[in-house]
Design a protein around this nucleic acid. Structure first.
Lengths: 336, 336
DNA sequence: CTGAAAGCGCTTACAG
DNA sequence: CTGAAAGCGCTTACAG
């Protein structure tokens, strides 16, 4: 086993209380004793066990945050909001970045047994039924951000409405053939899908229906990875066909930026040859003059952290579900 | 105090071992007993203490990462690299985002006393002498990324050379009046400054000297915040004067993007009216066609995490300092 | 299937 | 200034 305080005490010829006092920089230690203890610590390479240390004192709470790739600006912004709140109130913020459904399951397995954290925030997904049951059983509160779930603390936006707003805007600009690019991600159960993106698709279809237009299956394509490159690829598959759309609605700004790149490479003028609208309003949407549907990303994280913290402290929750507002932001990519 | 396993045991009329078995989903519990325990847990709102739990088992290690704002893509990329390595090898990743020198001190104070983590990674700074001493005393290994420190595990780039490369490139393009935008940040000691940016300034001066040009003090300006807006503001202060530079070297891509925005707003053609080069090569530099000096950001994080993990496991370190390569990337913002 | 007891590695009064 | 002892809240053999 590792070196413990007993080993140090023995090596220094003192009691463990004295070692502890040195460790905690108590005044009441004779300088020579102190030196001997420090020497023993150094020689043995002793490292106090933080767990044991915190067990005998007020101690810190920890909050786990499970999210997808750190390359996704949306998720980073949500994390930022969570961090803002937590750094004020106190608990450690443990980040679990998920790169596969398998890792997600493994982590949830450990977390749901109470092995690691005192509270959990999931970004853009919710734990499956089994994990949920155990989390409940162990009284570990869970908040989900960017996901709606009646059983959990949840902070979300109305993605159906978001999809509707974006599409209606394009229709109002006179477009009749509008493409939709959706991204898919691996789900906890191993399947693929993306609830928010699905909802936005529904809003897209609503707007088309309202305008009396049919939904054409070949105008809806999927991007498999979250990246500009993938957005460009999806745009290509949409535009390099006989009857291409005149406008594209991408379910994230990142994908939309890829479309803009594609358009630039092909010499297409935006928005005349091709109008583009995204979703999120990430920092760089302004830079790229990209129209989009703004989500209050940082606020999404802040609210989720606040709800969770209240639950962790056993405070009454005035509400367990918070819907955040969405806003259409029109820039040059749709209205030159 | 909080509800403990003893309270649950008493309420359920069983021993604590049985409660523990239920908690750990052991087979050897009679269904009825199990139900009674679960009921007690629910009624009392009992939450197992993760610290105590891990104390009596192999247990997880934790690594703390201290970094600046999560709005800085460079830092996020480094974090991403750290996360990649750590998620493979095992320890929890605890993120401490620093928004003030005061918070940084407070956190370092706790961490350096061994209260929270088993290892520490600092991004773009190093702990001050006092903290360093305590971290050593408690045998908590420390790695710094994007910072060079002979006493710590460090992974860094040669920023002087980076500044030199960027500036020489501009000189080669025929520019003679070259501005430099530097950002400052609050330091642990409360002072302001930014080592990497200072080093790049030095490289800038070297290149000018080599070309036989004087360093003009009014061509070097400071940005106070890390943002595009601040980059635009700095560009304005540089360009709205009698004898403006024909090229600007910004110490980060984010600032450089602000310069490009400024140029666009003013109707300046890039690179003919104004050449711009940044630093980092963040994801969006490609999108913006921004020339830059590429840092291996993710790799910087990966290496730091690897060095730290080796130290935490007591493995011999083949080297305590790793210099990562820098690369000039020429795009349209300097070479139309 | 179940409980009493020892132990995880510390901290902290309590006595000296 | 220093040490023996109790206690932090769990888990895990060990007996039954």
């Amino acid at each position: 086993m590792a070196v413990t305080i007993y080993d140090v005490a023995k090596a220094a010829g003192v009691g463990i209380s004295t070692v502890s006092r040195v460790l905690n920089e108590s005044k009441n230690v004779r300088p020579e004793t102190r030196q001997r203890v420090l020497k023993a610590i150094a020689e043995l390479g002793y490292r106090p066990n933080p767990l044991a240390r915190n067990l005998s004192r007020p101690g810190f709470l920890s909050v786990g945050v499970m999210l997808g790739f750190l390359t996704n600006p949306f998720q980073v912004a949500v994390l930022h909001g969570i961090q803002q709140v937590l750094s004020e109130v106190g608990p450690n913020l443990i980040v679990y970045s998920i790169d596969s459904a398998e890792r997600r399951e493994r982590l949830l397995h450990g977390i749901s047994q109470g092995h690691r954290v005192d509270g959990l925030i999931c970004v853009s997904f919710a734990p499956g039924p089994r994990h949920r049951q155990r989390l409940r059983r162990y009284n570990i509160p869970v908040a989900v951000a960017d996901f709606r779930d009646p059983e959990l603390l949840s902070v979300y936006v109305d993605n159906v409405r978001g999809g509707y707003l974006a599409t209606r805007h394009l229709l109002e600009q006179g477009h009749r053939r509008i493409g939709y690019i959706q991204d898919v991600q691996e789900q906890p159960n191993g399947a693929f899908g993306n609830r928010p993106a699905q909802d936005r698709l529904e809003g897209y279809m609503q707007a088309l229906a309202e305008a009396g237009l049919p939904v054409e299956a070949d105008l809806v394509v999927q991007a498999n990875v979250f990246s500009r490159a993938e957005g460009a690829r999806a745009a290509a598959s949409l535009l390099e066909r006989p009857d291409p759309p005149t406008a594209i609605f991408a379910c994230s700004d990142m994908l939309a930026l890829g479309i803009l790149e594609y358009a630039r490479d092909r010499g297409l003028t935006v928005p005349d040859d091709l109008a583009v609208i995204g979703f999120d309003d990430i920092d760089l949407a302004t830079f790229a003059d990209l129209s989009t549907v703004r989500q209050p990303m940082v606020e999404l994280g802040r609210q989720a952290a606040q709800l969770l913290w209240q639950a962790m402290r056993g405070q009454p929750l005035e509400s367990r579900a918070v819907e955040m507002p969405l806003e259409l932001v029109v820039r040059r990519s749709t209205a030159g």
